[in-house]
Each structure stands twice: as structure tokens, then as C-alpha cells.
């Protein structure tokens, strides 16, 4: 599907990065507006009405996480954050504050475009469908049925719920905290081992090679993501 015409706000204080992003996005048919710091970003979010915001965490004036928080006070625009590799803490903070996804610098253009597509899809089609299919995996929400290559899988309620949430956010990363909160409840936010065990079990059931997972991808130190293939 064509995403041409979608407006993307690029927020980064580094000129070369803005230049590259503009070139990459425009060549895919997107419209681009730029902001160089947090304040400008907040203003531009109002004035330019972007469909997606690409936000660098290392801004000179405001912390990227702070910008995210302020944006989320009044806007539901998807935010994709750019961050340096070692900073898991910042990434998690931003995601928990409301960002939708992240990219680790340096990243490949393909990754960027894939994330953008995921974000746009979630705008276009809020998860209201009753059936979800990706590759050989199919989930029927109405009937609470999960099939892999037409074979029904037997999942525990927790496993089902976990998978459901991953599916509802297909393509987007979910932090450990978000998953724990949504599956188990707010008081289980720090019980990461529960998550790990269940992911492990889930993988054993749906992945052909649990050591090389195809569907449920690990985002090291951050969380998990259901992989949807470009298409």
C-alpha cells in the first residue's frame, strides 16, 4: 500500500542525519518537515500535523524522553525514537513514556522504512480485526484459536494473552514492563522472569526452531516484538 503523502517530522540536531533522512524519506514518497531541538519539535508537532514523528533522544535542549512525555499529553501521533546502542535505559524510558518504536544508530534505511510502515499501518488499521495472520501463524480472536500451519496449538491463558498483545501491536516493540503490565497486571511490572519463561514456552510451541525465532523476536534489553514481514 502506498504511504505517499504521509507527513513525517524529523527531529535531530545533527544536520547530516536530517539530510540523509529527508533524502531517504522523500525518495519513498513521504513528505518531510524538520526540527532541530525539543522546543521546535513540540511546535512543529502542532503546526505541521505530522503523521509520524522521528525523534532523536540526544537533543540539546530537552531530553527526548521529556519531549515524548509532553507530546503524549495531547497527541497520539506515532513516535519512533533514534538512540545510540548502549543506552537501553533511555530507550525503555522513552518507550514507556509513550514512544512506539525505536531504531539504534547506525541503522539501515530498510529498517527505518519497515518501522514507518508498521507505524502507519497501526494508524490506518487499529487492531480491530478478529483474525490475524502472519506467515503460517493465524489467530482467531473471536474463537480464541491459534493455529500454526492449520494445526491448532494449545496455549495456556497467559500464553494466549501474551501472544494476543504481541499481535495487537504487531511489528512494534513492547517493553518488558508494558507486556508484564498488560498480561499480568500493574503489580507484576518487575517480574521479568515470568515473562521470559512464558516467551520461552510460547516459542517452543510456535517456532520451528526456538533458537532461531521467526515470529517472536527479542529486542535485547528492551522487550519483544512480533515480526511482521514487509509486505
Amino acid at each position: 500500500m502506498s504511504d505517499s503523502g504521509a507527513m513525517i517530522l524529523v527531529v535531530d540536531d545533527e544536520r547530516p542525519i536530517r539530510r540523509y533522512l529527508r533524502a531517504a524519506l522523500v525518495s519513498q514518497g513521504y513528505q518531510v518537515s524538520e526540527a532541530v531541538n525539543g522546543k521546535e519539535a513540540l511546535n512543529a508537532a502542532v503546526s505541521a500535523q505530522p503523521d509520524i514523528i522521528i525523534l532523536d533522544l540526544g537533543l540539546p535542549d530537552l531530553d527526548g524522553v521529556e519531549v515524548t512525555r509532553q507530546l503524549r499529553e495531547w497527541s497520539k501521533t506515532p513516535i519512533i525514537i533514534l538512540s545510540v546502542r548502549e543506552n537501553e535505559g533511555d530507550k525503555i524510558a522513552a518507550l514507556d513514556a509513550g514512544a512506539d518504536d525505536y531504531l539504534t544508530k547506525p541503522f539501515a534505511t530498510g529498517e527505518l522504512l519497515a518501522r514507518l510502515r508498521v507505524a502507519l499501518r497501526h494508524i490506518a488499521e487499529p487492531a480491530s480485526e478478529s483474525v490475524f495472520q502472519v506467515d503460517s501463524l493465524r489467530i482467531d480472536f473471536a474463537r480464541r484459536q491459534v493455529t500454526l500451519q492449520s494445526e491448532e496449538l494449545s496455549l495456556t491463558p497467559i500464553e494466549y494473552k501474551l501472544l494476543a498483545i504481541l499481535v495487537q501491536n504487531a511489528g512494534k516493540v513492547l517493553t518488558h514492563r508494558q507486556l508484564l503490565r498488560q498480561v499480568w497486571g500493574i503489580s507484576y511490572e518487575t517480574e521479568t522472569h515470568l515473562l521470559r519463561v512464558n516467551i520461552s514456552n510460547l516459542r517452543r510451541k510456535i517456532e520451528s526452531d526456538p533458537t532461531r525465532p521467526h515470529y517472536i523476536l527479542t529486542e535485547p534489553g528492551v522487550g519483544y516484538r512480533l515480526h511482521i514481514f514487509p509486505g
Partner: peptide
Amino acid sequence: ELCDVQDVIGTAL
């Protein structure tokens, strides 16, 4: 944290 060894190896691969 308690981690799944399979997960770690898989991610590394």
C-alpha cells in the same frame, strides 16, 4: 535478571 539461555543464544546468532 533471570534470562532464557536459548533466547540469548538465539539473539546472538
